[in-house]
Design a protein around this nucleic acid. Sequence first.
DNA 1: ATAAATTTTTAGTCTTGTCTAAATTTTTGA
DNA 2: TCAAAAATTTAGACAAGACTAAAAATTTAT
Lengths: 309, 309
Amino acid sequence: MLSQSEENYLKAIFSIELSNAKTVSTTLIAKNLSTKASSVTDMIKKLADKNLVNYEKYKGVKLTSEGKEIALNIVRSHRIWEVFLVDKLNYNWDEVHDLAEQLEHIKSTTLIDKLDKLLGFPKHDPHGDPIPTEAGEIEPINGKPIPNFKEGTIGRIIHIEDEPEIIYKQILAEDLHIGSQLHIVENNEKRVVFHSEGEEYVLAPIVANNITITELLKEEFSEEKSFRLSNLKNGEEAKIIGISRECRGEIRRRLLDLGFVINTKITVDLTSPMNNPRAYLVRDTSIAIRNEQAKFILIEKIKTHAKSH
Amino acid sequence: MLSQSEENYLKAIFSIELSNAKTVSTTLIAKNLSTKASSVTDMIKKLADKNLVNYEKYKGVKLTSEGKEIALNIVRSHRIWEVFLVDKLNYNWDEVHDLAEQLEHIKSTTLIDKLDKLLGFPKHDPHGDPIPTEAGEIEPINGKPIPNFKEGTIGRIIHIEDEPEIIYKQILAEDLHIGSQLHIVENNEKRVVFHSEGEEYVLAPIVANNITITELLKEEFSEEKSFRLSNLKNGEEAKIIGISRECRGEIRRRLLDLGFVINTKITVDLTSPMNNPRAYLVRDTSIAIRNEQAKFILIEKIKTHAKSH
DNA sequence: ATAAATTTTTAGTCTTGTCTAAATTTTTGA
DNA sequence: TCAAAAATTTAGACAAGACTAAAAATTTAT
């Protein structure tokens, strides 16, 4: 049985191996774990004795297959706990990292699989990262940060990095979320501009760097069709295509209970003086909700002879 | 912030204070934690320095109010995790202790309250022990082991101790569970005999000692009325009064889905050659279930002109 | 009341994981 | 290529927590 510290080293080495680093050096590990290089050397020797890493003095380390298996299990555990915290306990995804870091070290042969089942065998954690299977298979992340793509690219957000916090908060405030499709319209050293779900976003390249997307083919793109309910105009008719993944727990349940379920037709009914809340006509019932919540409801506009007033 | 070790000492001292022990001695703590008396002395000094216990050489220890508060929080955490493991992950209650022992040390100001909410603010853990409130209030346990009561006593099981394991397994095998009402009909050094839910149980006093009950007044007693569905005889009519608390998760859901809901009338329909499974008539439908499952369904017999065949 | 038994404490050691400071090796750059 | 810089390892120390063995205090029993 490994100690928490040993597990953390394996996890750190694994994550460095996954990044583009050539060799996993003592310094990199030390940086990753906020510790000193000398401590790392000590621990590496211990891990090498246990056959979890291959180590040659001054040459860096590499996980053995055994070490990799353990690392993958920890990653699996971490990500499943994150899903639990967000889905079941209604934490925001920026709050769960430290807690999951503790929970991932709980020792049990059955716990994670039972949790996995409770959560419905999720494939991704709340950051969009793939969850390794029980067998240790992990879906490769083949996306890159937004600034790596040229103007005109169409993509889907697959990961949002939550560190450093300042940048992450900025992204949260912009209301972007995993799964959104986007269309890059401008990309230079000064700014990155893209459209997503009926809104235009302008980000500094540093900020955009924390958002990873995969490129989509034109055919897969449905941005023109997919909007947020808050963008529905008077007189337009739409069909609900889902509730955004960023909306979970109680609020999601409430929206579903109110009748905002897939394939339901919806139009704007009444507008309050400030345009917030607005009332919508759903199944012959008028329901008023605030824009903050209407944002969560994804719709597809239906072509009508809209008399846009 | 306290270390896991410090927390475990506080918990141990707390549990000894709750028991009938006069003074909390070094040896008792050592026994409780399976460690050596000398280690205990060392740790006690540290806790005394932190003002968590009052300590005078050779005189035993006592928790300060601050120490008690921490101990209560750990107990709360432990018991809430146990409920989670049993209710949400379908563990048996004999499996959850060690896991909860790890989970109780997770550091977070919000986690336990969120879990508590998810679980519907349970008042008792799966062993029947009360869960301290957020404010640190705990319902006193005012029960005693079965052998302490005299013949004729009527009581309800409020706690089943899961250590030592051999005895616990024996109780599990007998199919006894928290909440059951019982009627003691014999109690001497050789054996304890009682009736519960239509069955007679004969236990050795050592075994019965692990079962804690509270005495009930005659008026509160409903044993004569409450049976398990597996005890229903051909021709008798009954009303479902609930599904036993020991049946949780999937099986419980399945039984409810099949129509075994409270207040439903039920009779035996057909019997297979081995009497297992048996078919029951519920809401004009015949449903066959095995006795292992019928045991979970609690019924109340309805007086009829039963032609017991 | 006092010797024996038991409990508790002290002193010293060990392991894990960390650190600093110094020594050694590798890499970099003119 | 070779000196300076950077990276890595070694040596020695320290804190937490536990252990053994022995000393000291308390309790028990005759």
